[in-house]
Write a protein that binds this DNA or RNA. Structure first.
Lengths: 132, 132
DNA sequence: CAAAAGCGTAACCCATAGGTTACGGATTAC
DNA sequence: GTAATCCGTAACCTATGGGTTACGCTTTTG
């Protein structure tokens, strides 16, 4: 019902730079655990635990295909935290748009992801890489 | 220039439930450190350090009045994290609204805060109280 | 001007988060 | 069917975060 629990988990998950980089990776395409781990300097088990945190927070889902486990984003959870944030910087009408978002985004996400957002966020991707 | 650094600080600041409760408190009115501390079961120095984290993240500003130090929200920083989140759950046109938000919200915030948002978020306040 | 109020900081303690190596259980390949 | 691949978990270590008490500085009060 309430926000609090979900916000707590999601905020905690997002607080780590490695986990944020993983989320950015998954924005483009679903990826198997191994391929995600390869892109980091840290060990594979370390990445595996970050993936668990993301799973438990609900920000990502996992899907077994053969001996590989693919990870993919779950957009709804992001909307929840965005909703919590909105109370601090909300112009009139914001929440109505947000409500529409929560129900609409999920099915249209993959199609939209490439056009408007991808370009504008390209530079952010670079910054994410530099986080160490 | 880039998001990364700011997002890191802000996400870290928001990850703690006590700090989130403080932010919710400041949504209504600026408060002196002592009055904030009174509303928590933990010691005053503990709250003082949470306030420092919030200050360094840029989410709040402080202002000395006599021997009291008032804290108040800085809306711009919230918009930055909201912008980062938007790349994951963004319908077409979202960012344009967000850009307008960043420049417009700050001056109109206090007036708006009471009407649309306050009621809808009332239940969230309760949830925040229960975080322990 | 002494005393009290308001806050921040320092020093310390303990729990937890995030890293590593070692291991085991599936699934695919040979 | 044996070997190799993919990936999660366990056990362990260290750094950090959040809590506490003790202390000191500045500003108001009597």
């Amino acid at each position: 019902m309430g926000y609090a629990f979900a916000v707590d988990e999601v905020a905690g998950a997002i607080a780590d730079p490695v986990r944020r980089r993983i989320l950015v990776m998954l924005r483009e395409e679903r990826l198997p655990a191994g391929e995600i781990a390869e892109r980091f300097a840290i060990s594979r088990p370390a990445v595996s635990r970050h993936l668990r945190v993301l799973r438990e927070s609900g920000l990502v889902a996992d899907e077994l295909v053969g001996r590989r486990r693919f990870y993919l984003l779950r957009a709804e959870r992001f909307a929840e935290l965005a909703g919590w944030l909105a109370q601090f910087a909300a112009p009139a009408g914001w929440e109505r748009r947000l409500d529409a978002l929560e129900t609409e985004v999920y099915r249209t996400r993959r199609g939209r992801a490439r056009d408007a957002v991808a370009e504008r966020q390209a530079k952010n991707d670079e910054n994410q890489e530099n986080i160490a």
